[in-house]
Design a protein around this nucleic acid. Structure first.
Lengths: 225, 225
DNA sequence: TGATATTAAGGAATTGTTTCTTTAATCAAA
DNA sequence: TTTGATTAAAGAAACAATTCCTTAATATCA
């Protein structure tokens, strides 16, 4: 108990804050294109429907500070956000499962602008192996296991539900450090492996629920703002 | 129907709980296929890396209750979850913005299994209008405005950032009640319109952050200033 | 048949996040 | 230069969500 400068709880940036940051970034880029040089937290808050103090708290994580009575300088803030979010360094990733959703992601070239480049894709289905989707050719997953020395740290998981856990284990066993999980299966992450769950169906469930709640109840309170 | 739980005013189901439910559902379907007839919350919790009491709390929202010392009956629980999440009724949706991400979603046929069917797509780019992607032909967005009497309540927003707000407004003005927003732009929802934000980049930001934190920690203080 | 262990469920305490409040800074205008 | 208004930032309070704790029920085993 003697160590008093042991970092408490790791001081992780709150996930909700991290999720809001790309939204600020998109907004700032639009403002920048419009010619704005300074933007205040008040303005950011109003245009994005969040609390002004939350904006300053969120932005303070990037290390940038604003000027009293002026706001934030747009360009440095954009740079700081992109740096902080890791959008400026290009990370390479492998995709596992070239089914419907995997194919969809291979078609999407938007991720490259945010620092993620898919450089390989794997599957077990003979019907897709050998084909090229979005410029990436699909290989058998054994090829991934054979190649021990790839420096790829990020794996995108888009297999069917039944294989998700098995493939995730294989990814980890072969050096993957971060799993971007698009399946509804909850991956119990081993050692120091990061798992980011992004099941579209989870979001769909929330949307359906809110839609039904709004439709069936006329005394609904509007999102307590 | 809602007479007995009138005590709490709105009693909205917490979003984190809703997001976990599809995960339980996927798990239960796998267990069902394996032949399990009963599954306990303890087991669900262990296999999915969550707290057992959280499982029972989450599942209680569906109205199903488990049997002491036995657990939950798998089949009725699957039914209840699918019903509760709105996965059993097929909702139809329009897609706005057939760019990279929009095209990707049109290629994905997985959504149909979860109750969402894309039945139309709109854009403004002459290069894509008239083409068919994933069985859906792309029309000019004016066609959407002309057709006042479509019964479509759900709109998927996949336009470029610059047009997101404008298109969202147009959607709402023409009867869309729920916007599934894939852009990083925060849509300030009007009256009783539901907005579900699903920016992939937000998730990417969280993953990058956690990955970097995991790689650089141990001895180094988090450079958060 | 009775004891034991396992489970669901409800309420309390804890934790984390958001919102509110206060303070200090500084630009603009008089 | 002085005054007033607006802003960022830091701390306090409120809120929501998770985890912990207790209770009641019951299938299994002795």
């Amino acid at each position: 108990m003697g160590e008093e400068n042991v970092k408490k709880k790791n001081a992780l940036v709150p996930e909700p804050a991290l999720r809001r940051m790309p939204c600020y970034l998109a907004y700032l880029k639009l403002e920048h294109r419009k010619g704005s040089q300074y933007v205040s937290s008040t303005l950011i808050a109003r245009d994005n429907g969040v609390d002004p103090t939350q904006v300053t708290k969120d932005l303070s994580y990037t290390g940038i500070s604003g000027k009293t009575r002026v706001g934030y300088e747009v360009e440095p803030l954009i740079d700081a956000l992109e740096d902080f979010l890791g959008f400026r360094v290009m990370d390479e990733a492998y995709l596992f499962g070239a089914g419907s959703l995997g194919t969809a992601l291979l078609h999407d070239h938007g991720l490259v602008q945010y620092g993620l480049k898919i450089v390989g894709a794997f599957d077990v289905n003979p019907l897709v192996i050998g084909h090229s989707i979005g410029g990436i050719s699909i290989a058998h997953i054994d090829e991934f296991v054979k190649n021990k020395d790839h420096g790829i740290k990020i794996g995108i998981l888009t297999t069917p539900v039944a294989n998700a856990r098995e493939v995730a284990n294989m990814m980890v066993a072969n050096g993957i450090k971060a799993i971007w999980n698009f399946t509804p299966v909850r991956i119990t992450s081993p050692e120091g492996v990061v798992v980011q769950n992004t099941s579209l169906y989870a979001h769909l469930a929330v949307m359906f629920n809110r839609l039904n709640a709004a439709g069936s109840d006329d005394s609904v309170a509007p999102a307590k703002k």
